[in-house]
Amino acid sequence: MSDDDFLALVKSYEGRPCGPPQRAADPVNQPMIRHWVEAMGDENPIYLDPEAAAASVHGQIVAPPTMMQAWGMRGLQASLNPPAREDRTPMDELTALLNEAGFSSVVATNCEQRYDRYLHLGDHLVSQTSIESVSEEKKTALGAGHFVTTRVDYATTEGEHVGSMTFRILKFKPPRSTP
């Protein structure tokens, strides 16, 4: 396949939804919030202390807003076991195409999150992701690669839109490592 054909192929994924809406494995919950704030060293009491949260503008325990993306992450087993070919989403297909062309490493480069409101215990998120853009091949400090930008909209299972995210990764050819 020529470089032009390859670029046309990966660009054909622009604008496509990454499969059906994804329901988070679990609703917003205190244990996952606790793991997060302990890791971050975040001592804001609105995340763990019911009384302090009730006395704040939030009125109740809330999740850290920057945790929004974490609720929808697929988890360990799905990370270890890529989906069968027939179950692949357009994003899985695009990732496989880039991997097969040698752009096998990935690094996140940009993230913009917008929050309509903070999430409460029990909110159950549903995310809808679409592929916004695939760049031409760029030379970067890490190696040659393609930037892939996705847009994610987050809603509750009741259908209330609660936030959105624009996320950009670089799929790049790793420099040859010496053993």
Partner: peptide, 22 residues
């Protein structure tokens, strides 16, 4: 992202509401 959010609310306090992080 989590550390950026923490950094800003460490300063702004529990009554802050973050609406966007880029």
């Amino acid at each position: 992202n989590g550390l950026v959010g923490r950094y800003v609310t460490d300063w702004a306090g529990p009554d802050a509401i973050i609406t966007r992080v880029a």
